[in-house]
């Protein structure tokens, strides 16, 4: 019975698929020549700009380079950021 489950869990998570996924991600960084430090710098600047307009959850801020499949089945690199908003700043009042 144990073997039975083992068989299934293995099927879902073949080590070669893990290897392939990990490689794809690491190669995006390698090819773009982007270091974690570089991403931190980008993140810092984005926070600065966005904070002018809205209050954001900095701890939940997630930024990374990713791959996006295009219509022709080729992949392109994309900078993907997930920025949780706490509250919009009332720009009208400030400006007015």
């Amino acid at each position: 019975m144990l073997d039975f489950f083992k068989f299934f869990s293995k099927e879902q998570n073949k080590s070669k698929d893990v290897a392939k996924e990990r490689l794809k991600l690491v190669l995006i960084h390698d090819r773009a020549n982007v270091s974690p430090k570089f991403l931190e710098m980008v993140k810092g600047d984005i926070i600065k700009v966005i904070s002018n307009y809205m209050e954001i959850d900095e701890a939940g801020f997630d930024i990374r380079l990713s791959r996006i499949e295009q219509e022709d089945e080729n992949y392109t690199s994309a900078l993907v950021a997930n920025i949780p908003i706490k509250r919009m700043k009332n720009m009208g009042k400030n400006n007015g």
């Binding site: 073949k14 080590s15 698929d17 794809k24």
Partner: peptide, 16 residues
């Protein structure tokens, strides 16, 4: 190893 999914196959490698 390729058969049991524990080694990247040719297509995987070329794809990458």
């Amino acid at each position: 190893m390729v058969k049991r999914g524990d080694m990247m196959n040719i297509d995987d490698t070329i794809d990458i």
